[in-house]
């Protein structure tokens, strides 16, 4: 197991380096002057020249790459033209909100998706299976930004059931930050009214964000359950008189959950990308909204930094999923 962890960590370092190569390449395929891009659209010539020397844009490419890696290792992601602050600071400020939203969304997707997949498989071709199927085919096809807008329009504006956006109402006291995730901080500080309010603010964005993941999880879990339920050992367990729920929960789901886990990992990563679409709709001050604003105003360094951050986060999720796989499946564990 330790060997496996070490091996995966080593691989992750290589992948992170590859990720840096990609962002470096993207930054340098830009037509025109990278110094001008970094300086932003409104900078004058003098500022551009200053940035050129400061960030080493006047050096040859390989030297610049080494410089770039050095800057990254020092936690220097450049400066945002839009906010006028170091990008690293902005990311530290906005990341917790996004992590909170994504964790909440993936929890919804898992807590609903796994049982719905099981129900659909157990009641195959019954009306409930068709209803769940409708949900799962629609979930991947609905544009999540549009779904978010429609939820906001109908449930928040028309029926006034949910807040329009943001993380908390303007009159609530924000708990003293520990993790930066408001709901978690509120729990840690014992402000339980705020916990509810923070979760309440996340329901609509999380619904929009989690629907594609929910759909994918239902689909995979249903297919896996169908296959497992048809296996001989399940028939054998039935013949032995083991109750239906025990067969489903203990004998079948345990085997069906592995491919579902892989899908959860993948969708978790895509959700990080989806925040760019959803956070803007609900004015949720996270990394996604930050990236969307930066992209619109051609604020180059923040976009690259967000790409790096979310890419690294995705890799980390994959690492965790890989290790979970090894914990759950002795075949994978013993391969090494």
């Amino acid at each position: 197991m330790l060997k496996l962890i070490a091996k995966r960590m080593g691989l992750m370092v290589v992948m992170l380096l590859g990720l840096a190569v990609i962002t470096f390449t993207v930054a340098n395929i830009a037509p025109g002057d990278p110094a001008r891009l970094a300086a932003g659209p409104d900078a004058n010539q003098e500022m551009v020249e200053q940035i050129r020397v400061e960030r080493g844009f006047d050096r040859p490419l390989p030297v610049r790459f080494v410089l770039y890696i050095e800057q990254l290792l020092n936690g220097d992601f450049g400066t945002s033209v839009y906010t006028g602050r170091p990008v690293a600071k902005d990311i530290a400020q906005f990341l917790p909100a996004t992590v909170e939203l994504v964790l909440f969304s993936i929890s919804i997707a898992i807590l609903l998706g796994v049982p719905l997949g099981v129900i659909a498989a157990v009641r195959q071709n019954r009306p409930i299976d068709h209803a769940i199927r409708l949900l799962s085919v629609s979930g991947v096809a609905l544009p999540m930004f549009w779904l978010g807008l429609m939820l906001q329009w109908y449930l928040a504006l028309n029926l006034d059931l949910f807040p329009l956006g943001g993380r908390l109402g303007i009159f609530s006291d924000v708990p003293e930050p520990i993790t930066g995730m408001i709901s978690l901080d509120a729990v840690l500080r014992g402000q339980f009214a705020v916990v509810g309010e923070a979760l309440w603010h996340m329901i609509l964005p999380a619904t929009a964000l989690s629907l594609p993941a929910l759909a994918a999880i239902i689909r995979v879990n249903r297919a896996e359950m169908l296959e497992v339920l048809g296996r001989d050992y399940v028939t054998n367990a039935r013949a032995q008189g083991i109750g239906p729920w025990r067969i489903i929960a203990v004998y079948s789901l345990k085997n069906a959950i592995l491919p579902t886990l892989a899908m959860i990992g993948l969708r978790f990563g895509w959700m990080l990308g989806g925040t760019v679409l959803v956070e803007g709709v609900f004015d949720f001050p996270g990394l996604g909204l930050y990236a969307a604003k930066a992209a619109i105003s051609s604020d180059f360094e923040p976009i690259m930094a967000v790409t790096l951050t979310l890419g690294a986060a995705f890799m980390l999720i994959n690492l965790v999923i890989d290790l979970l796989y090894a914990v759950l499946d002795p075949r994978v564990r013993n391969q090494i």
Partner: peptide, 22 residues
Amino acid sequence: RITDIFLSIPGLILAIAIVGAL
């Protein structure tokens, strides 16, 4: 390996970065 690295970045984010550059 190159493919794996590309697959490990959320596609939409990378697309936004490329549009940001272009």
